[in-house]
Design a protein around this nucleic acid. Structure first.
Length: 955
DNA sequence: CATAAGCATGGCT
DNA sequence: TAGCCATGCTTAT
């Protein structure tokens, strides 16, 4: 469905992955789940975790729930951009011209033509040229691996000819800026349309980063909008000829240098990219080592000097974004795996170089393996790195190499290799003293840089925040940012939902039928590690394991499990599930903006609600339903942790205390008594937990089209108090008839007309409602009779044998007003927990079917545990009196009076179960018990007709 | 026997 | 699938 909403149909979600790369996720069918899971106003950057500072631009909410926007605080988190909806096709990016229908490039930033777009600002319509005045690059002139993701171009973009038609001069920074601006505002497609508005003042904040293609390799580029400080005029890099890598670099530089915006802590990236200034002096090919040394120079960096305290990031420092950069081009154009890309920050560079005029060329880095950091003193060097940046050696003995550490101390290591399978294995020998002096251990990262023009090799290090290896397996988003290193774990912990988002994302990707996304997920699975560790912090077993591995375990075990092999730390699916749960929890914080109408846009048959206003980011609360039909909202005080009842329409700030309870003056201080007994609270929380679990479980099931998710229902519930439901989601707006209601529910309750409406039903009425009631009643009676006879026989048998005191106790207990099922039975839990779950029906249906096939009972709610009802039954009589009045009232409210009259004479037993906390103006405990008791009436013969929480207990 | 050096293996990318 | 590389094994000292 691409029509006049084309501009809306181009949407992209990017997520920063490891190495500072961005992952792209595209709106569309396959992206629905992604959006749903990831949409949050929480910055996806685990270290950032910004919430409140996120500025809303314009966001979309998938009808199944969730919002998307970008983090304006760190800028690196994720964002929602306009994007092409045809990413997966080979010719992705080519769309019909909005004006004339001719094919043109959509302006997507992640297609194989990404660079082309950046270079040229877009692609014109080949027919009318109205969208842009830019021509595309002929395919045969594109550099090898241009924006593609084949395994061949791992780590770099190569040029087959080295003589691409694209050169630096063609980079139109103005267009880039415009692009950035448009991207920021409306997305690439709007950029295409706004070419005619070319102005020079539109300096949109753009950051160019490398991106992981679906295979995780460098393959295309992306922008992320950053609030960067103004860093000086844009620079254009001029060169005679450039290979693709050079193009990349220059583009990088160009983009990075036009970064500007509001002052922000994370402003240094733009300064950090090394750039190739001039390579015109390469007419005589230098020695490879020399070439490697001169291939890059750093531009002067107007960096604020930070007192050197070693290379560890000081959290008091200006926070920096640690972004992996492709290192200086070494000899042989070796492909350097991204995990070796230097991620040194400018501050670290500064600390190394001091204020000398030298420039630091980050070369590569490596996470120390156990054997690297072990006593053997051999540091295995990545082959490509060794050959690219270290002097060439032809003999296995190699040569001594002097390397300066961060403190200026020189070390001499033997740089050598071992022949290995017709290849070489490079090692630095004798590193133990150095490693020890830097107090490094497995998991820490050593960095290798070169000081130019001297060509001196320097090594630095970066401590893992724990003794755990993180680098290769971490998402840079987690380790980067203001809480890098020392605060890594706490930062992650604080942002569990975010990390969980990755988990959910992974799940989604793994489950995706789309090969690209699945592949992406494979790469993303590095996230699992962090998740795993994170979980380790949270869950005992993991924690223990972590500790063992890091500090207590035997060397062998430690070394076995520490390292960059992400699979070693993969979390199991159960963990992922839990994590997803927490991610889903994050979703709870999002509410559609109150009193704001969403406009609906269609994206590939998917409906999106478009909001001009940001969603409300509020405190997580629990909604409960009263049997009277009303709803309550429960919020926990951040100060005393007491749960307070609030109106359903109350929207709380993220932090909320009793003192802010303006709805209930009697409970607006922490000293006010609880409204719930501990038992009730436990009940509530457990039910809520169960709800979440079920919701997650349900989310594992294949999504059914056009069925709102629990998330949506949740959101709906959140706004119900406001306006009775989101106008854009009418089908969901009526989901509160009873706890198990979901769209399409045709239970007896739901097919009732609203209270006071509709005709009175005559006994002979054959309307749907009446027929249903009759049919159900019939089966109910049949079942009841059967059960009763069975039970009588059973009791008689028991009497014969021995009187078990248990029954008496139960009766006594129940008659004393204590609901026997206060402990939430499965049934209870389901009622509440599925009350807003759009997926609940999926599970209910089989149960129903099974039940129906057995006894033709097809009521809306079924007790799952007969024994509960058995015991419950004993108390029915005693509870009837208490319960009758409210229930009657309730039934009348629900327009069931006539049915009551019609059937009450014959309907002999039923129970109304209700799981939620009840008040009705009674004392907290009593109210709950009373309501619960009320829900258990029904054993008496003079019962009440179907209410929306009808449970039949024919016994 | 302990340690170092060199080589080989196999998991993993 | 090739090849990288973490690490174990073997040999030398």
């Amino acid at each position: 469905m691409v029509s006049e909403n084309r501009q809306h149909s181009l949407k992209l979600l990017t997520v920063e992955g490891r190495n500072g790369s961005l992952f792209f996720f595209f709106f569309g069918k396959v992206c629905e789940e992604l959006i749903r899971r990831m949409a949050s106003r929480i910055c996806m950057n685990g270290a950032c975790g910004a919430t409140s500072s996120i500025e809303w631009r314009k966001g979309w909410r998938l009808r199944s729930g969730g919002f998307a926007n970008l983090c304006d605080k760190c800028g690196s988190a994720y964002e929602q951009l306009v994007f092409c909806d045809a990413f997966h096709s080979k010719e992705s990016g080519w769309r019909e011209c909005n004006s004339c229908g001719k094919l043109l490039h959509c302006g997507c930033i992640a297609s194989k033509y990404a660079l082309e777009l950046l270079d040229n600002g877009g692609v014109e319509c080949t027919n009318c040229a109205r969208s842009s005045g830019i021509s595309s690059i002929p395919t045969d002139e594109r550099p090898y691996g241009f924006g593609t993701s084949t395994a061949d171009n791992v780590g770099e973009l190569r040029s087959t000819s080295g003589d691409s038609k694209i050169d630096g001069d063609s980079i139109d920074k103005r267009r880039l800026m415009q692009f950035g601006k448009c991207m920021e505002a409306n997305g690439p497609s709007s950029f295409l349309q706004s070419q005619k508005d070319d102005t020079n003042e539109s300096l949109g904040p753009i950051k160019r980063e490398q991106v992981m293609t679906p295979r995780g390799e460098l393959g295309s580029t992306s922008f992320s909008n950053l609030n960067h400080a103004s860093l000086g005029p844009p620079q254009i890099i001029k060169r005679d000829s450039m290979g693709a890598n050079d193009i990349y670099n220059s583009l990088s530089q160009t983009c990075l240098n036009i970064v500007l915006g509001a002052p922000s802590a994370s402003t240094t990236l733009a300064l950090s990219a090394p750039s190739v200034v001039d390579r015109r002096d390469q007419s005589k090919p230098p020695s490879s080592f020399q070439q490697a040394q001169r291939s890059r120079q750093l531009l002067p960096k107007p960096l604020k000097m930070v007192p050197s305290t070693g290379l560890e990031t000081n959290k008091d420092m200006l926070p920096q974004i640690r972004v992996a950069r492709p290192p200086a081009e070494g000899r042989g154009r070796n492909q350097l795996l991204p995990r070796y890309w230097p991620r040194i920050t400018d501050q670290e560079l500064q600390q190394i170089s001091g204020d000398s005029n030298s420039t630091i060329v980050p070369l590569f880095e490596k996470v120390l393996s156990a054997s690297d950091a072990g006593r053997i003193g051999r540091l295995v060097l990545p082959k490509a790195c060794a050959e690219a940046y270290f002097p060439p050696i032809s003999q296995p003995e190699g040569l001594p190499l002097k390397i300066q550490d961060a403190k200026g101390k020189d070390w001499v290591f033997q740089f050598r290799f071992w022949p290995n399978n017709n290849s070489r294995m490079y090692v630095l020998e004798g590193v133990t003293p150095c490693i020890q002096s830097m107090q490094l251990q497995a998991g820490d990262t050593v960095t290798f840089s070169r000081i130019d023009p001297e060509g001196k090799l320097v090594m630095g290090f970066r401590k893992a925040s724990n003794s755990i290896t993180l680098q290769d397996t971490q998402i840079s988003a987690l380790a980067n940012g203001p809480h890098a290193n020392e605060t890594f774990f706490s930062g992650v912990i604080e942002n569990l939902p975010i990390i969980s988002g990755y988990s959910g994302l992974l799940q989604s990707l793994k489950g995706s039928t789309d090969p690209h996304l699945s592949a992406m997920s494979d790469h993303l699975s590095s996230a699992d590690v962090d998740i795993g560790w994170h979980k380790g912090e949270k869950h005992g077993s993991r924690t223990n394991e972590s500790l063992q591995l890091s500090t207590l375990g035997p060397e062998k075990k430690r070394t076995r499990n520490i390292g960059s092999k992400s699979k070693r730390l993969l979390i199991d699916s159960e963990d992922a599930l839990e994590l997803k749960l927490t991610w889903e929890e994050a979703q709870d914080l999002l509410r559609p903006p109150p009193s704001v109408r969403a406009s609906i846009v269609m994206v590939e048959d998917q409906e999106f609600e478009e909001y001009e206003e940001p969603p409300v980011f509020g405190k997580r609360t629990i909604f409960t339903a009263r049997s009277s039909g009303g709803q309550d909202q429960w919020a926990q005080c951040d100060s005393c942790s007491t749960w307070r009842r609030l109106p359903v329409d109350a929207l709380l700030p993220p932090k909320w205390t009793c003192a802010e309870n303006s709805w209930d003056p009697s409970r607006n201080s922490c000293s006010a008594p609880n409204e719930m007994s501990p038992k009730e609270l436990d009940n509530l929380l457990r039910l809520n937990m169960d709800f979440k679990k079920r919701r997650i479980m349900a989310s594992h099931k294949p999504p059914r089209e056009h069925e709102p998710s629990g998330l949506d229902a949740l959101a709906t519930a959140a706004v119900l108090g406001d306006n009775g439901g989101d106008p854009g989601t009418p089908s969901v707006a009526t989901t509160t008839r009873h706890p198990r209601h979901r769209p399409g529910c045709t239970c007896i309750v739901c097919i009732q007309p609203p209270s006071g409406k509709g005709p009175k039903h005559q006994p002979s009425c054959t309307c749907n409602v009446c027929m249903t009631v009759k049919r159900r009643f019939k089966t109910l009676m049949m079942r009841k009779k059967k059960r009763q006879s069975e039970r009588e026989a059973e009791i008689a048998q028991k009497k014969l044998q021995r009187w078990g005191p248990k029954d008496e106790v139960e009766v006594d207990s129940a008659s004393g007003g204590v609901p026997l099922h206060l402990e939430p039975s499965d049934n209870e839990a389901r009622q509440t927990t599925e009350s807003e779950s759009g997926d609940g029906q999926n599970r209910v249906v089989p149960e129903k079917t099974a039940e129906s096939s057995k006894s033709q009972i097809d009521l809306n709610c079924h007790p799952d545990r007969e024994d509960d009802l058995q015991s419950m039954r004993m108390s029915m009589m005693s509870l009837l009196q208490v319960a009758s009045l409210p229930l009657e009232k309730y039934l009348k409210q629900n327009g069931l009076t006539s049915l009551i009259c019609e059937q009450q004479a014959s309907l002999s037993s039923h129970a109304v179960l209700h799981t939620t906390v009840e008040s009705e103006g009674q004392l907290p405990d009593e109210s709950y018990f009373a309501s619960t008791g009320q829900e258990q009436e029904g054993e008496g013969d003079e019962g009440f007709c179907a209410s929306d929480q009808v449970i039949t207990d024919p016994v």
